[in-house]
Computed example of a mutant assay.
Amino acid sequence: MLATEPRLGPVRLVAVDGPSGAGKSWFAGRLAKVADIPVVHTDDLLDGWDDQFTFWARLEEQVLEPLRHGRTATYLRYLWHLERFGGSPVTVEPAAAVLIEGVSSARRTIRPELSFSVFVTAPADLRWRRALARDGRDDVAFRAYLERWRAAEDEHFAAEGTAAHVDLVVDGAAEGPGDRYEAV
């Protein structure tokens, strides 16, 4: 990854994409720790539940554009429990590499500027269980929302052909000694 050429100005932008519950955040966290690079989670830039794919202009303006020009990026996280942006500003320096993690992070519009991209996948039933456990809800309304979210993801990934355009597909369900991920 660090041997690739920078394509987002001076930055090697690395995307970790895949459906909800596949293990993107866990994988991105491990990768960032090993490589000592910052991570931007797209969920932090969503303006609530209905901003699943329309957040990109915010990411572009607050994160990608500054990094593209070698400047520090600054943004506020979405505070899900308060349903608004706030808290302390997050800063991302134009490091040798920056990781962007989340659904649609390897979308077609950014592919020319990605130095490396990963698609994390896992079986649908495992992803469902993980999403329910992660969000701490298992009521009828949340299940209906999650079904809509996942249907939109499926449609997005099919239209974008994401898994066919990444550098590495990772099995987010693999378990074993050491890392629990395997390239597929």
Rank of each mutant, 00 (worst) to 15 (best):
R111Q: 04
G178H: 10
A96W: 07
S25E: 02
R130C: 00
P6A: 13
E153F: 01
D47E: 15
A163I: 03
R148N: 07
H165T: 09
V16E: 02
R127C: 15
E160A: 03
V90L: 08
A22C: 12
W49S: 11
G70F: 13
P112F: 06
D44F: 07
I37S: 05
D171T: 02
Y145E: 03
H165I: 02
E182I: 06
S88F: 10
M1W: 07
D171R: 05
A73Y: 09
Y145I: 01
V11D: 06
A163S: 09
F53M: 10
E65I: 09
V14L: 11
A32F: 06
P38C: 11
G18D: 07
V103R: 04
T109F: 05
P6D: 06
L146P: 01
A173N: 10
Y181H: 11
Q52K: 12
G172M: 04
A158Q: 08
L45A: 05
D138K: 03
G21T: 00
A152I: 04
T72V: 15
A183L: 08
R127S: 15
F85G: 08
V166T: 00
L31W: 13
A133R: 15
G48H: 06
H165E: 13
V39S: 04
A3H: 13
P6K: 07
G9A: 11
E175L: 15
A133P: 08
G87C: 11
E101M: 04
T42Y: 02
H165C: 11
E83D: 13
P10S: 07
F157V: 00
H41L: 07
V140L: 11
A22V: 03
L59N: 04
T121P: 00
E93Y: 07
L64C: 08
V92A: 14
K33G: 14
I100K: 02
F142H: 01
F27T: 05
V63A: 07
H156K: 03
L76H: 15
Y181N: 04
G102A: 06
P89A: 15
W128Q: 08
A183N: 03
L114K: 02
A122P: 01
D17H: 07
S20F: 00
H81M: 05
H41S: 10
P10A: 06
H156A: 10
V166K: 00
Y75H: 14
V16P: 02
T42V: 14
A122F: 01
V39K: 02
A144D: 09
G29Y: 07
E61Q: 14
